[in-house]
C-alpha cells in the first residue's frame, strides 16, 4: 500500500510543518525552551515549517490527481494544525523532537 504510506508521510510532514511554525511563535517556543528565540532561529523555524508543508503538498500530488491532491492537502493542514494545538495544550514535550537540533541552553 504505497499510497497509504505516502499519504501518512504527507500527514506527518503537515504535522511537523505546523509544529515548526507554532514553535517560531514566542508563546509556544516558551512551552519548550526559555526566553525568546533569536531572530535567526525564528527564520529557520519558519523556513523549516514552510518547507515541510510544501513537502506535504508534493507528497499529496504524487498520490492523486491535482484537484484531489490539493483538497487532501488543505484538509491535512487543518487536521495538522488541530493536532499541534492539542499537543501544545496537553503534551508540549512531544514536540521536543522538532527542536532536537537546537540543544537547550540550561
Amino acid at each position: 500500500m504505497p499510497d497509504a504510506l505516502l499519504l501518512a508521510a504527507a500527514l506527518l510532514c503537515g504535522i511537523a510543518g505546523m509544529g515548526w511554525l507554532a514553535l517560531a511563535m514566542d508563546v509556544h517556543w516558551r512551552q519548550l525552551r526559555s526566553g525568546t528565540p533569536a531572530r535567526k532561529i525564528i527564520v529557520t523555524l519558519r523556513v523549516l515549517g514552510s518547507t515541510a508543508l510544501a513537502a506535504s503538498l508534493a507528497l499529496c500530488l504524487t498520490v492523486d490527481h491535482v484537484s484531489m491532491a490539493s483538497l487532501v492537502w488543505v484538509m491535512t493542514l487543518a487536521a495538522s494544525a488541530l493536532i499541534i494545538a492539542f499537543t501544545l495544550s496537553t503534551r508540549p514535550v512531544w514536540l521536543a523532537p522538532l527542536l532536537v537540533w537546537l540543544p537547550a541552553r540550561t
Binding site: 499519504l7 500527514l11 492523486d64 484531489m68 483538497l71 487532501v72 484538509m75 491535512t76 487543518a78 487536521a79 488541530l82
Partner: peptide
C-alpha cells in the same frame, strides 16, 4: 467536493473530522 462520490478513504476521514470540528 460536497457530494464526495469519489474514492478516497483519507479525504473521507478528514471530511468527518472537519465536520465534527
Amino acid at each position: 467536493l460536497h457530494l464526495q462520490h469519489f474514492r478516497h478513504w483519507l479525504l473521507r476521514v478528514l471530511y468527518f473530522v472537519g465536520g465534527i470540528s
